[in-house]
Amino acid sequence: MNRREKSITANYTKAIVRLVFFSLLWVLLTNGELSSWVIGIVVVPFAAWLNLRLFIPRHHVVSDKKGETKSYYFSLFRLLRLLPYFLMNSLKGGIQTSRLAFRRKSLTTSGLVRYSVNLPQGEVRLWFIHLISLLPGTLSARIEGDELAVHMLEVSSNNVRDITQCEEKIAFLFGLDKDKATWGKSK
């Protein structure tokens, strides 16, 4: 069996494993109801296809401002390691938002903060921008170049520190250096 045939066999195996997984998940979610397969016959293959498209480890190459090239890739294992961090911050964000909503007097100092993003453009930056919304009292508002406008319910150094920490977590997720090197555009 040549290299191309092995690759095709591996891809079919991945697809079958995902189809079986999403079929079992569908059965669990629908309590095994046979009539649910009227929709499941479309949803399950689509979910498996989408999973293959979104979570295929792809290496990307970016250049930093010094001209050095580095590669990075999304790691499902690292995502699982970071899941508790993001779940806790999502919970803290919900609690803080409800606490601020039920205050009698508005003592908040809400506003927009400009944050200089040090992650490469593309999917890495997109992950970062979306995950900021899970942090307590923050929401990505707009990005222009490397400047991200973040709306904060309470403008504080703690919230800015949380954004910096989130950026470091995303860098870890994609296997980028933790040293906060400023990256250029994706190649």
Rank of each mutant, 00 (worst) to 15 (best):
M1T: 06
R3D: 07
E5A: 14
K6V: 13
I8A: 14
T9D: 14
A10D: 15
N11M: 10
A15H: 03
A15S: 14
I16L: 14
N31R: 11
S35G: 08
S35N: 03
S35F: 09
S36E: 05
S36L: 03
I41H: 11
A47N: 03
L50A: 09
N51M: 06
L54K: 10
I56N: 04
I56H: 01
P57C: 12
R58V: 11
R58G: 02
H60T: 02
V61F: 14
V61W: 08
K66Y: 05
K70W: 04
K70F: 03
K70Q: 01
K70L: 06
S71T: 02
L76C: 10
L80W: 06
R81N: 08
L82R: 01
L87V: 10
K92W: 15
K92H: 07
G93F: 06
G94H: 14
I95V: 14
I95C: 08
I95W: 12
Q96P: 06
T97K: 09
S98T: 08
S98L: 15
A101R: 10
F102L: 07
R103Y: 04
R103P: 02
L107Q: 15
T108Y: 14
T108W: 15
T108R: 13
L112H: 15
L112C: 09
L112Q: 14
V113E: 11
V113S: 15
Y115N: 01
V117P: 00
L119R: 05
R125V: 01
L126C: 07
W127L: 02
L131H: 06
L131P: 00
L131T: 02
I132A: 04
P136R: 12
P136A: 11
G137T: 07
G137V: 02
T138Y: 07
S140N: 08
I143S: 03
E144V: 06
D146N: 05
L148T: 00
A149E: 12
A149F: 11
V150C: 05
H151M: 11
H151P: 04
M152I: 00
L153C: 13
E154M: 04
V160E: 05
E167S: 05
A171W: 00
F172M: 11
F174L: 03
D177F: 08
D177S: 15
K178I: 03
K180H: 14
W183E: 08
G184F: 04
K185M: 01
S186K: 13
K187F: 01
